[in-house]
Nucleic acid binder design. Structure first.
Lengths: 231, 231
DNA sequence: GCTTATTTATACGAAGCGGTACATAAATCA
DNA sequence: TGATTTATGTACCGCTTCGTATAAATAAGC
């Protein structure tokens, strides 16, 4: 099975896990509250990021716990203890992806440039994400999740719906601001344009996954942006 | 595992398999050339259609040979003998899907109506397909395949690329004809519009899979068509 | 040093997986 | 009728899967 085996990752540097991101403990101060037993040999954030790499590449069903174990450097019982079963881990992985994607898009948004360069920049970031991956382009993890697990698991479906909606609203805000600045005709409908912008995100994600070359995707994006900035 | 088990299909009516669609035999006449051994208890077309139902719903990795066996009414050795292993079966299934989709779109195309109603009709057909399915909407099988198996199997990837391209060319022809008829401004770029039209197909396929309701998808389509028919 | 708390490491088990060997059934051909 | 050809049905194989039971390791508290 070609798609099952990950290349044997370099033995992950195991940080000493000093910083606890969030303690359920009612302790007030942010100081490191000494834990009682054996310290963990992993950092949850790093492990989730590693798990994301595998899920993103292979999808939920084709990813085994052994794959996840190898990728994170955690053995199976530790994985289970830390994140729950495979589905739970997938959900947490997806949330970590969303946080990452949101942060990147937030940066672009904060740059506050005119509509056209802003859109081109956003699509550039998207292409960087979708075409990255050691074993070929990975596409968009939201799209991957929508086409696989979203049908069966209501929780995951809710996450995906929220992800799609967030993207739509992000673009809608962008077009609304541009319209208020006079960069778009008054007749333009920011909501419709936002849907088109999301659709363009989705289509490049799918095509990236089919290994359509970047230049072709950029041509597609340029054309789409031309239409959008015209309102 | 929720997504593994199919509801036990009603015991499929087993036709007598009289019509052989295409014989590799050099025999000329189209008359039923009598086969030698025990007659098959299935019709390949029906079996492929049944297999499509399962693959489409669950994806390649989450579909077991037992699932396929149950869906087609063929036991595992028969499946193997008829279509080869799981991957081969998937490819043949995908081709049968493409044929079906092409036929439907071809009908719409042949109707030869003005651009806007034509587009609306095409998206109506797409929505019918993507929202059908006994256990929830199924999305677009090309998109599903692109996001899963296309990464690992070059043959499947080639099929997907060809499927995406066919859709693009279909829309491009549509816009070109409309432009020649004067329904679109001369400045419009049929290729760009075709990409937007495909992107709209892709986005509604993804959203359908996330169980976004049809009315919402139709609103999205209407907005996208408004932008497209303006050129 | 001993107890307690927490994590890691090994190993196991029941179930499911894709694929196939082998015997049986049903047709044609001679 | 008997040989041949093709398809079916059962049962099995070796392997992988997810999850867990159990023991060893490493920290703090006393």
């Amino acid at each position: 099975m070609v798609q099952k085996r990950n290349p044997p990752l370099p033995p992950r540097a195991r940080p000493k896990a000093k910083t606890e991101p969030a303690k359920p403990q009612p302790a007030a101060g942010g100081v490191p509250p000494k834990r009682r037993g054996r310290p963990r040999a992993y950092e949850p954030d790093v492990a989730l990021s590693r798990a994301l790499d595998v899920f993103w590449k292979d999808g939920f069903a084709a990813t085994s716990l052994d794959d996840l174990s190898a990728a994170t450097g955690m053995n199976r019982p530790s994985l289970y203890g830390a994140f729950g079963d495979k589905r739970e881990l997938y959900k947490k992985t997806y949330e970590s992806y969303r946080n990452r994607a949101r942060a990147r898009m937030g940066e672009a948004f904060a740059a506050d440039m005119p509509l056209r360069p802003m859109l081109l920049r956003i699509y550039g970031i998207a292409l960087d994400m979708y075409l990255s991956g050691e074993d070929g382009p990975r596409g968009c993890f939201t799209v991957m999740t929508a086409t696989s697990e979203a049908v069966f698991d209501p929780d995951i479906r809710a996450l995906v719906v929220s992800g799609l909606g967030e993207m739509d609203r992000f673009f809608a805000r962008l077009f609304k601001i541009a319209q208020e600045r006079g960069e778009l005709p008054a007749s333009a409908d920011p909501q419709v344009l936002a849907n088109l912008a999301s659709a363009t995100i989705h289509t490049i994600a799918i095509r990236a996954r089919a290994q359509i070359p970047r230049t072709e995707l950029e041509t597609l994006v340029n054309g789409a942006v031309d239409v959008m900035v015209r309102g």
